[in-house]
Simulated assay, not measured.
Amino acid sequence: MRLLLCLLALLLSGFASPARAQAEEAQRQVLVMLQLPKAHYRPDGSYAGTYGEGVGRQSRQHVAQSLAQAHRLEMRSEWAMPLAGVDCFVMRLPEGDTRSSAKVAEAVAEDKRVAWAQPVSLYRAQGSQQEPLYRAQPAARQWQLAELHQLATGKGVRVAVVDSGVEANHPDLVGQIALNENFVDAKLVPAEGHGTAVAGIIAARADNGAGIAGIAPQARLLALRACWQAAKTDGTQTLCTSLGLAKALYAAIQQGAHIINMSLGGPDDRLLALLLDQAQARGATVVAAMPGENGPFPANHPGVLVVGLAQPLPAGAVIAPGRDVPSTAVGGGWSLVSGSSFAA
Rank of each mutant, 00 (worst) to 15 (best):
I215P: 00
D44G: 09
R158A: 04
M91N: 02
N182Q: 08
A139N: 09
S59W: 14
D207L: 06
R113L: 11
L243Y: 06
L222P: 02
R76E: 15
H194G: 03
G193W: 12
A343E: 04
L73W: 06
S13R: 13
A107I: 07
H71W: 07
A317Q: 06
Y123D: 01
V159Y: 00
E167H: 02
P171F: 03
P171T: 08
G265W: 10
V318C: 09
S66I: 04
V318H: 06
V157W: 05
V307Q: 05
G235S: 10
A281P: 08
A160L: 01
W143K: 05
G127C: 09
H258P: 01
Q35M: 07
V86W: 01
R57Y: 12
P43C: 06
Q61S: 15
G193E: 12
V63T: 15
R42C: 13
S100D: 09
C88K: 06
E293P: 07
A251C: 08
H40I: 09
V55K: 13
H194A: 08
S121D: 13
L5E: 13
E53S: 10
Q176R: 15
Q58R: 15
I259H: 04
S13L: 14
L11E: 11
A279W: 00
Q144I: 02
G195S: 09
T328E: 01
N300S: 15
G256A: 05
I253L: 15
A152R: 15
D277G: 02
G331E: 05
P190V: 04
R220F: 03
A284L: 04
L173Q: 02
P171S: 06
A204H: 05
R225D: 01
P171D: 02
V30F: 07
E53G: 12
H194R: 06
